Amino acid sequence: MSKRRDNRLNSREVDVALEPIEFNTLSFDEAFRSFIEDAERRGLREHTITYYQREIGLFGRWLFSEDKAELISRVVRADINSYVDYLKNERGLKNGTINTRLRAIRAFFGYLKDSKYIANNPMENYPLLKSRTGNIETFSIKQLRQLLNAPDRRTFTGLRDYTYMLLLLETGIRLSECTGILVEDVKLSEGVVFIRNTKNHFHRYVPIQSKMKEQLRRYLKVRGTCESDALFVTLDGEPMQRSSLQKIVGKYGSRAGIKGVRCSPHTLRHTFAKISVMNGAGVFELQKILGHSSMEMVRIYVNLFSSDVYKRHKEFSPLKNL
């Protein structure tokens, strides 16, 4: 007579019993679809969702080419290593670009693990590639004057574009953040602008000084009332789209004949950081205004642009008394 089974399962048997069926059946396409649907439910920015679709979609194509997309649960760490090797050796991508893809893939597998669609996360503690931070492009004061003198402020679009570029320079806000600003977010009496469309979903106020307040006051007076609540609008009164705002700095940079630097909203953000650091801004103030969730990028700005070290070098230079 066989021994009666113990009704209580051991730990290994419990794992088997409670393992979701999806562990063995979910394909890459199904997993990818679930991830994007979850991102939409959580209200992630359209720009972020597009980023995930692009980067994870490219990873999915590689999985299909390697016959590894049928079951997402069978993707292991060695496959991630192979994908990185492919990007480096066959595609010739730089480490920074590869890291952009790895961050998206990490979010993807993190979601699958948290949702219990996979038992093991191949991206768990996966290190990003070392990427040297090169010189961050910024505008010189001369280039800033050329850029800001380029719009024809006798036209509505010129006045609008000048105000937009001045606001980017004054506050260092991101393009996507500027796109989301409403008229009601401009608090002239308080000297702040409310930023609602943030990268990390933490709303914040950014300070503006007298020149910026006066320029916004002029623009708002000319803008008048229209159906859209957006701060920056077209001639038809429609809100300016991200793609249109993206092109403004480049258009006027080209018109002003600016060379040797990429004319973009992000370059104005870098320029804000540079001038702020050179004028004595601290890391905590800079982090709060720029809306960085960590100190990493702020420290890079300080290391690159702080003038203190150069001033102190005059005092301790080994050649001083030779």
Rank of each mutant, 00 (worst) to 15 (best):
R8M: 14
S11D: 15
R12M: 14
E13T: 14
V14L: 15
D15K: 15
V16E: 14
A17H: 14
A17R: 12
A17T: 12
L18V: 13
P20N: 08
I21Y: 07
E22Q: 13
E22I: 07
F23G: 01
F23C: 06
T25E: 10
S27C: 11
S27A: 11
F28N: 06
D29A: 05
D29S: 10
E30T: 09
A31H: 06
A31M: 04
F32L: 02
F32W: 03
F35N: 02
F35A: 01
I36R: 00
E37T: 08
E37P: 03
E37R: 12
D38Y: 10
E40W: 04
R41V: 13
R45G: 10
R45L: 06
E46Q: 08
E46N: 09
T48D: 04
T48F: 02
I49K: 01
I49D: 00
T50Y: 00
Y51L: 00
Y52D: 00
Q53D: 01
Q53Y: 01
Q53C: 06
R54D: 07
E55C: 02
G60V: 03
R61P: 10
R61V: 11
W62C: 10
W62R: 08
W62V: 10
S65A: 14
S65I: 04
S65E: 15
E66C: 11
E66L: 07
D67N: 14
K68L: 14
A69W: 05
L71T: 05
L71W: 07
S73L: 10
R74S: 12
R74A: 10
V75P: 03
V76R: 14
R77S: 05
D79K: 00
I80V: 10
N81R: 07
N81T: 01
N81Q: 11
S82C: 05
S82L: 08
Y83S: 04
D85A: 15
Y86Q: 07
N89L: 15
N89R: 15
N89Q: 13
E90I: 12
E90F: 11
G92N: 12
L93T: 13
K94M: 13
G96H: 12
N99P: 05
N99H: 04
N99A: 00
T100W: 02
T100A: 08
L102Y: 02
R103M: 08
R103D: 04
I105N: 00
I105L: 03
I105K: 00
I105C: 03
R106L: 03
F108T: 01
F108L: 02
F108N: 03
G110I: 02
G110V: 00
Y111H: 14
L112R: 07
K113Y: 08
K113E: 10
D114I: 07
D114C: 09
D114R: 15
D114W: 05
